[in-house]
Simulated assay, not measured.
Amino acid sequence: MSAALSGEDRAESIRMIRDSAAAVAPPGGDMKRVRDLRFQTPGFDPAVLRQMGEMGWIGLRLPEAAGGAGLGLGEACALAEELGAALVPEPLIPAMLTGSLLAAVGAGPLDRVLSGEALVLTAWQERPDTLDVPGSPDAPRRFLPMAAGAASFLLPVREGGRIALYEQQAGAGLTTEQTQDGGHLGTLEPSLATATRIADDIGEALSLALDEAALLTSAYLLGGMDRAFAMTLDYLKTRQQFGRIIGTFQALQHKAADVRMQIALTRASIEAAAATLDDGATGDARRAVISRAKARAAASSMLVTRECIQLHGGIGYTDQYDVGLYLRKAMVMANLYGSAALHRRRFMAVSPEVEE
């Protein structure tokens, strides 16, 4: 539906999505809630995930016939950006990925996923820093965000030249490891003997879903770096040293200008990618704009949040000060769905703008 909107109507749709995010991600964030959930199990609030489902966020990208809202990536990226600004820990992007797969095959627990009643994670990754899906039947599936809160897992399994899809209920075979931001990643041992086969071939649908998840993660990182910079500007305007506001020091002004430029370039790349995809780009053109956006967001999020810590001085290094939470989140999110290095390589391989 979004692709058919005029420019003015699409801008209004994106504005409304941003406004709706305040229900979960109020302006300025709710750092007490974020801190209370850190290093806890499951690391997020299931009631908030259900609220996201009730608001239609999990099915935001799905057609109305599949129970979704039929909106575009422009709206989805705007939502992800708002959630990133508030460091919302609920795994909305992984839930959206699963919803896309289940809607594509018309099977499995789609209603429970879209309502937020159950977190179902797609266990596709077998090794670090890849977008490839080997589908090995016995290989451990790694890097599952907030896996302790999942009701079940989707297992892509290669069978001949196709990738079938199974659902495995949560239980034995799952281990978790804490991450810097206070969440965790899970590793799942597949058990096809107890899993339910729900689709014969999901290869293309999974590839598209992973690309969209990469772009949405880029937008989440953008929201985090933008908010961290806003906090830093407030600090520079109020903190005094040697009888002067430190924001008047030319060296700090230069650093702040560099940070602002990184954020602006990241925003332009993400918005261009979302618009290109909403206009119907496919194949290499689609992959190129997504990889350009993710490479920039992954690299810039680390650079920006580190500079924000530096600009805060000693207080920025304390865990009690909120700006450090944004660096910790970037450290975890930057490599999800492909690192900056991986996406730079993919961009070079698929972009028609790059000469051989």
Rank of each mutant, 00 (worst) to 15 (best):
G59F: 03
G135H: 03
S301I: 02
G324Q: 13
F143D: 14
A205M: 07
L87Q: 06
H312L: 12
I270M: 06
L73H: 00
Y220H: 13
C77A: 14
E307S: 14
G171F: 05
S218T: 00
R328G: 03
E167S: 09
F143I: 12
L97S: 00
Y326F: 15
T196H: 14
R227N: 09
A170D: 08
C308F: 01
E54W: 02
F39R: 14
Q168D: 08
T194H: 12
V323Q: 00
P26I: 06
T318A: 15
S136K: 14
R50G: 01
A264Q: 10
D258V: 10
R345L: 11
G182P: 09
L336T: 13
E82Y: 00
Q169A: 15
L222N: 03
L144H: 04
R10F: 03
I93F: 02
I163Q: 11
I315C: 10
L252T: 11
E126H: 09
D30V: 01
F229C: 08
A47T: 11
D322K: 03
A285T: 11
R141W: 04
R345Q: 15
L188Q: 08
A11Q: 10
P109V: 04
S20I: 01
L121F: 03
L342R: 02
F39Q: 12
E8T: 13
T98G: 08
V289S: 04
G283H: 06
L121E: 05
T318R: 13
G173M: 09
E90H: 02
A295E: 14
T194F: 05
A23I: 06
D234Y: 02
V105Q: 11
R344H: 12
L154I: 07
S136W: 07
A21K: 01
D9H: 10
A349R: 12
L233S: 10
L101S: 03
T276R: 09
R162V: 12
P156Y: 03
M302Q: 12
A273K: 03
M96S: 05
S6D: 06
S100F: 00
G70T: 01
L192S: 09
W57R: 01
G314I: 08
A330P: 08
Q40S: 15
A118K: 15
M225S: 02
C308A: 08
A214H: 01
A11S: 12
E54C: 05
E75S: 11
V332I: 05
